[in-house]
Amino acid sequence: MKIGVLAVQGDFAEHIAVLRRLDVDGREVRLPEQLDGVDGLIIPGGESTTLSRLMSIYHLREPVRAMAEQGKAIWGTCAGMIMLAQEITEADPVPLQLMDIGVRRNAFGRQIDSFEQDLDIAGLELDSGGKAEPFHAIFIRAPVVTRVGPAVETLAVLPDGPAVAVRQGNLMATSFHPELTGDARLHRYFLSLISPDGPGPGRETETPAPPKRVEGCRR
């Protein structure tokens, strides 16, 4: 299985590192021809205005839309969620309009309002006790889903309401950054959308790595 990771800007290397731990070939996509032969695409975190411009300049919008139409799986994290939206609260950036969701950028405020929090997410693999462990979610200048279309399934909400993880068929979007946590469950979930026999939920093919933490730095 080959997964493209949009690499025009943002934390694409972290997604590729998680895919590598799952024995999946993750490749950087900066130009349309680099989408040839990929089975799915991840649009990483970054600055959505920058992603939007670079996707336009290098003619990546049409081939990504075509992938979605062919039923290939696409996952947007943070800025990637903004790019997948049908509509956003501002005129800029210009989203791809692939998922039937409305999204508000910087929904929590500025950087000092960025946060970490445990989330219950529907559809994650269950542990031996028959329940899914909460997912430690990192929200950085994060967007939220403000409107969910009828075909869209909400996978996770914050305690005060807004949806922060959604799925519509083979498309999914998360407000937070699973690629920064060392928890690969959402990556496995995404891969299971492509190939139910792949390293999806229930198939433990990796040794979980603890999140990197800088010594001497207080939390």
């Binding site: 690499a7 943002g10 934390d11 694409f12 970054g46 600055e47 800025a79 960025s114 920064l180 999140p211």
Partner: peptide, 12 residues
Amino acid sequence: TVKSGHAQMLKG
């Protein structure tokens, strides 16, 4: 995590 994570988003 949140502070250094923001810098990750600026990469590239």
